[in-house]
Design a protein around this nucleic acid. Structure first.
Length: 737
DNA sequence: CGGGCTGACATTTTT
DNA sequence: TGTCAGCCCG
C-alpha cells in the first residue's frame, strides 16, 4: 500500500505526500497533479502514519471537489474510513460547526442561511427603513462594502468609527441595521458563516481547543483564494499542532473581488518560517503548445514570487488556434463548426469539449447555436435552479416552517399566493413590529393575542390567517417526515393552483415541474432522523454552487464561465470573447490589480485544455442587444505570433467609427501605448448590412469573403449585384437612426 | 388591492 | 435583452 501510494508520484509529489509533520506549502502549477497529491497524502496519513481519519480536516473549494475527494478515498481506503474524514468547503464546514456551537455566541442553532437574493431583499428593507433612496444607494454596492468589511472582520461599530466618506457613512448605518435584522431573523449570510466561526474560535478557548484537538492534520486546497476570515480560521486551528498543509498557485488567484487575499499564500513562509516549500512544475494535462501560450501570457504578470516553469513530456501537440471572427455570431458558429468537425472525424466526443467565456450573458448565443446544431450540451450556472421564483417561494414556506423569524422569507410570501395583504399592510406591519421591537412573526403572534393594533378588520383577518398557516407548518415540522411536510405545505398553500392561475398552461406546468424537482431533492434526506431532515435539506440548498451540478459523465458539451472552470480539464477548450472590455472586463481596467486578475483568469482558462486550445475574439459584438465594435484583447498581443495558428478573418482589423476611435484613444493610458501587431487594414462587411457607394448608391451586402489580405464584398445595388474589393470601393456603412 | 402597462436601466466573476 | 420599479385604472 505504501509503495503503491508513492510509486505513482514524481519526486516533489512524493515529498508533498510524505512530509507528514509541520507546515507544508505546495505551489502547484495547473495540471501538476495536486488533487492526486491531496488524496494520496490523506491516504498516506491514515495507512502509513496511522492517523485516525477523525483527526483529519480537508478544505476544498467546492462541494463537488469535496464529494470527489471523499469518493476517491473511499475507493482507496474503504467507505468506513472515508466517512470519518471531515471534507468540505469552508462555508459548509463552518455551517456545521456553528449548528453545534453557535449557542456560545448567544445565538440559536436553527439559523437559516441567507443567499445573495435574500441579502438584497433585506437590504432593500433596511434602505426603506432608513429613508434612503435605492437609486442613489444601490443595495448591491452597499452589500458588497459590507461583505468586504465582514471578510476583514470589521464590526458595524468599527466600520462607523472608520468611515471617512459620505458613502461609508451610509454603509455604516445600513450595516448596523442590516446586522440587527439578520440577528432578529435568526439568519446568517455567507460571510457570517466564516466571521462567526472566527469569533467562536477566538472568544471561546475551550471550543477552540476542542477543534484543535480534533483536527490535528489540516489540508487546504486553493489556498491562494482564501480570504482573511478563512485565513484566521486556519491559523487558529493549526496553532496547536502546526500540521498545516496548503496547496495553491498564485498565478491562478482569481477571486480577489470577493475578498480573497493572495498574500495569504505569499506570506505563508513568513507565518510559518519552518515551512517545507514544494514546487510542482511537471504538467500532466496539456501539450507543450498549450503550455507555451499560457506561459507567454502569465510571464508578463508582475507579481510572481514563486516562478514556476511548467514542463511536460506530453509532446508539442497541435498548434493553438486563434480565431478572429467578424462578430459574436460568427465566433460561435466557428466553435460549433469546429466541434462538429472534431466529432465527425472521430477526434472528439461532445463531452470532450468545453466552451469558456467571461460573463454568463455570453452563454445565451452559445446555447442557441448548440440547440440549432443538435449538439447535446450543459450550461453551468446562469439561472440557478434554487433561485427560480417558484422554487424560492416554496422554499420560503419551508424555511418559515424551520424558523418562523426568517423575515425575508416571511415578507416574500406573506402575499403569495395573494391573500389580500397588500403593500400598504405590509409596510404597516413592518413599522408596527419595529415599534414593538420584535420580529415580524412575533408581531403577527401579538396580533393573534388581540393587543392594540393599527390594522383594519379586513387586513387583520388576512394577517391572522397567514399567521395560522405558518404556525401550523411550524408545528408539523417536528412530527412529519420531510416529504410529507413538503406535500402538506404545497397543498395548504395551494401552490399548483396558484401557478395555474398566474401563468398560461405551458409555463405553469414548467414551473410546477420545478417545484416537483425540489420535492425530489428532498428524497435524499429521508434517511436522517425526522428532526434533522428539514434543516439539513435547507442548509445544503443554501450552500450548493452551480458547479456542484456539473456532470462529467454525460457526453455533452460543457458551457461554463472562466471562473467556474477552475480546477477542471477538457481535451478541447474554446475560450470566447478575448476582447478589450470583456477579457479584460471593462470593470477591471481602472486598476492594475484587477487587470492582472483578468490575465490570470485567461491563464486559468487556457490551462484547462489537454489537447486542443482555441482562442477566439470578435470584431463586433451585441451588447444589450446593441451592436458595438470590439478590439482584440491586449492579452493576445503578448503571445508570440509563432505560437498561434491564425484562422478566420485573417488580418482583419476593425475600422473604428469616429466616435470609437476617440473613445479608444482616450481610454488608453498614455504611458502604455497600444501594442499593435503589423497587420493589413481591411474592412469587414456581413450579409444584410446596408452600405452606400459613391457611384452605385445604396445597397445591401449579400456576402463577403477574404481574398489574400483584402475583402471581396458582394452588394446588391438597385440595378444589379456587384462584386467589389473593399480596399478600393470605399463603401460606407449606413446605420439606422 | 391587484393587474397591466411602460420606460428606464443594467451585466463581471460566486461561496 | 430582460427585469423591475413606478404609475394608472378597474
Amino acid at each position: 500500500m505504501t509503495d503503491d501510494l508513492l510509486s505513482q508520484l514524481n519526486p516533489p509529489q512524493q515529498r508533498a505526500v510524505a512530509t507528514l509533520e509541520g507546515p507544508v506549502l505546495v505551489l502547484a502549477g495547473p495540471g501538476s497533479g495536486k488533487t492526486r497529491v491531496l488524496t494520496h497524502r490523506i491516504a498516506y496519513l491514515i495507512t502509513v502514519a496511522g492517523i485516525d481519519p477523525f483527526h483529519i480536516l480537508a478544505v476544498t473549494f467546492t462541494n463537488k471537489a469535496a464529494r470527489e475527494m471523499r469518493e476517491r478515498l473511499a475507493t482507496l481506503l474503504g467507505e468506513a474510513v472515508a466517512a470519518d474524514l471531515t471534507v468540505g468547503t469552508f462555508h459548509a464546514i463552518c455551517a456545521r460547526w456553528l449548528r453545534r456551537d453557535i449557542v456560545h455566541l448567544g445565538r440559536e442553532r436553527d439559523f437559516v442561511i441567507y443567499d445573495s437574493d435574500d441579502q438584497e431583499r433585506l437590504m432593500k428593507r433596511v434602505l426603506r427603513e432608513l429613508n434612503l433612496n435605492e437609486k442613489q444607494n444601490p443595495p448591491r454596492a452597499i452589500l458588497s462594502a459590507i461583505s468586504r468589511a465582514k471578510n476583514e472582520l470589521i464590526s458595524p461599530e468599527e466600520f462607523a468609527r472608520a468611515a471617512r466618506s459620505y458613502f461609508d457613512e451610509i454603509v455604516a448605518r445600513c450595516y448596523a441595521r442590516y446586522q440587527a435584522l439578520l440577528s432578529e431573523s435568526n439568519a446568517l449570510d455567507f460571510d457570517d458563516l466564516l466571521g462567526e466561526t472566527v469569533r467562536l474560535l477566538r472568544e471561546h478557548p475551550t471550543v477552540r481547543e476542542r477543534y484543535q484537538e480534533r483536527y490535528q492534520f489540516l489540508l487546504v486546497d486553493e489556498y491562494q483564494d482564501t480570504n482573511r476570515a478563512q485565513y484566521l480560521i486556519v491559523r487558529a486551528l493549526a496553532e496547536r499542532y502546526r500540521n498545516l498543509f496548503v496547496v495553491g498557485d498564485e498565478a491562478q488567484s482569481i477571486y480577489a473581488w470577493r475578498g480573497a487575499d493572495v498574500r495569504n499564500i505569499l506570506q505563508f513562509e513568513h507565518d510559518y518560517p519552518d515551512a517545507t516549500v514544494i514546487l510542482l512544475e511537471q504538467n500532466y494535462r496539456s501539450t507543450q503548445a498549450i503550455l507555451d501560450v499560457a506561459q507567454a501570457l502569465i510571464s508578463v504578470s508582475p507579481q510572481r514570487k514563486y516562478d514556476k516553469r511548467l514542463w511536460t513530456t506530453n509532446g508539442a501537440g497541435e498548434p493553438v488556434i486563434l480565431y478572429e471572427a467578424f462578430n459574436d455570431e460568427d465566433e460561435v458558429q466557428f466553435v460549433i463548426g469546429e466541434i462538429m468537425r472534431l466529432i465527425a472525424s472521430g477526434k472528439a466526443r461532445p463531452g470532450d469539449c468545453a466552451i469558456l467565456y467571461r460573463t454568463n450573458a455570453q452563454s445565451r448565443l452559445v446555447e442557441e447555436a448548440l440547440v440549432q446544431a443538435h449538439l447535446p450540451y450543459q450550461v453551468v450556472g446562469g439561472v440557478r435552479f434554487y433561485e427560480r421564483k417558484e422554487v424560492k417561494d416554496v422554499l420560503a414556506y419551508l424555511r418559515l416552517a424551520a424558523n418562523p423569524y426568517d423575515s425575508v422569507s416571511l415578507q416574500r410570501i406573506i402575499n403569495w399566493p395573494g391573500r389580500g395583504i397588500g403593500e400598504r399592510t405590509v409596510t404597516e406591519l413592518i413599522v408596527w413590529a419595529r415599534q414593538l421591537g420584535v420580529p415580524l412573526y412575533q408581531a403577527l403572534s401579538e396580533l393573534a393575542s388581540g393587543v392594540d393594533n393599527p390594522f383594519t378588520a379586513r387586513s387583520r383577518a388576512a394577517l391572522l390567517a397567514f399567521h395560522a398557516l405558518i404556525a401550523d407548518l411550524n408545528q408539523r415540522r417536528a412530527a412529519l417526515p420531510l416529504l410529507e411536510l413538503i406535500d402538506f405545505a404545497l397543498t395548504a398553500v395551494g401552490v399548483k393552483e396558484t401557478l395555474a392561475q398566474e401563468y398560461d398552461t405551458e409555463e405553469a406546468e414548467d414551473r410546477w415541474r420545478n417545484v416537483q424537482e425540489l420535492r425530489n431533492a428532498a428524497l435524499a434526506y429521508l434517511h436522517l432522523p425526522i428532526e434533522n431532515q428539514l434543516a439539513a435539506f435547507l442548509e445544503d440548498i443554501a450552500l450548493v454552487a452551480d458547479i456542484d451540478a456539473l456532470d462529467r459523465n454525460s457526453d455533452v458539451v460543457t458551457c461554463i464561465t472562466l471562473h467556474q472552470a477552475k480546477g477542471l480539464e477538457f481535451p478541447n477548450v474554446f475560450v470566447l470573447g478575448i476582447e478589450e472590455g470583456l477579457l479584460p472586463h471593462s470593470r477591471s481596467l481602472s486598476q492594475r490589480e484587477t487587470l492582472e486578475e483578468e490575465r490570470r483568469l485567461l491563464y486559468v482558462g487556457m490551462t484547462r485544455a489537454q489537447h486542443r486550445l482555441y482562442l477566439c475574439y470578435a470584431a463586433q459584438r451585441a451588447l444589450f442587444g446593441r451592436l458595438s465594435e470590439s478590439q482584440r484583447s491586449r492579452f493576445l498581443d503578448v503571445i508570440p505570433p509563432h505560437l498561434l495558428k491564425r484562422a478566420g478573418r485573417r488580418g482583419y482589423r476593425a475600422t473604428p467609427s469616429l466616435q470609437n476611435s476617440m473613445f479608444n484613444s482616450r481610454s488608453r493610458p498614455r504611458s502604455e501605448p497600444a501594442r499593435q501587431l503589423s497587420r493589413p487594414t481591411t474592412v469587414t462587411f456581413f450579409a444584410g448590412q446596408r452600405v452606400r457607394h459613391a457611384t452605385f448608391g445604396e445597397g445591401i451586402v449579400v456576402s463577403s469573403r477574404l481574398i489574400d489580405d483584402d475583402e471581396e464584398v458582394t452588394v446588391r445595388f438597385p440595378d444589379r449585384e456587384r462584386r467589389l474589393l473593399a480596399s478600393f470601393a470605399r463603401l460606407e456603412r449606413i446605420t439606422d437612426g
